[in-house]
Amino acid sequence: MSVMETEYRFTHKHILGIEDLSAEDIDYILRAAESFKEISQRPIKKVPTLRGKTVINLFFEPSTRTRLSFEVAAKRLSADTFNVAASSSSTTKGETLVDTARNLEAMNPDIIIIRHSRSGSPRLLANHIDASVLNAGDGVHEHPSQALLDMMTVREKKGELAGLKIAIIGDIAHSRVAHSNILGFAKMGAQVAVSGPATLIPAGVAEMGATVCESVEEAVADADVVMALRIQKERQRDPLIPSLREYAKFFGITARTLAGAKDDALVMHPGPINRGVEMDPAIADGPRSVILEQVTNGVAVRMALLYLILGGE
């Protein structure tokens, strides 16, 4: 093991998804993130590691939380950051994503952090530029930094990921967070159980490493972690669920659902929460909830990713 550790090199130029990472990569990123977390607790929260590096936040979808988290991470490492708010609709007509990529490339950025409503957009960007690309969420594909911060949070609380049971409840089909978490936790040796309305459980999710449970109770039984996903109000019109009211009643996480989980089970949510829909407010704000720690760890994980991609010493 120690031989492996000395030989290990982080070689990824881009972070497009958890799918491309090995268990060893994930472990390495999480360990780096743990050491970066300490920086955020200092009185002066800044190190010169990435001075002179240019980071562009290219967000085609509004996202205050993730964008801010990346921006804070980059600034704490002394990188120059620029925010580009683009709209996906303007790129479907006129300027294409490839045009945008070439324009940004002309400014010689070191890394482009992209959030886009279409799955695979970060790959398309990476195909056309020399800079590194970091996926901050693409369509319903992946959201790797979110899964990494979730894994970091669980590891902090539970010590090890291997052998844990992770229950993910809700709209698995439209959740890039769920996809990245299923892949990530499974790679780290955890058992992932998913449940929700069958209309929101996508085809072939078992082949990604998750066990599909018909009932929420079954998924939550003896779980170490219970993660609820945001349900989007539009799903009522799709038609995938009849009403948020019925969803809350049968698929929302309440004290009763949680009773089947382990006594020290963690409650997580990638946010933002529809309180009273996918989770009872008493649970979200309760003692088992680590939702705010997820936010803190988000900065640390993103610092680690920027540092590792840009080849910091």
Partner: peptide, 15 residues
């Protein structure tokens, strides 16, 4: 095509 690959890639499937 709808299946495990469309799910993994986050693409809407055609069954």
């Amino acid at each position: 095509n709808e299946g495990s690959i469309s799910t993994r890639m986050g693409l809407i499937g055609i069954p």
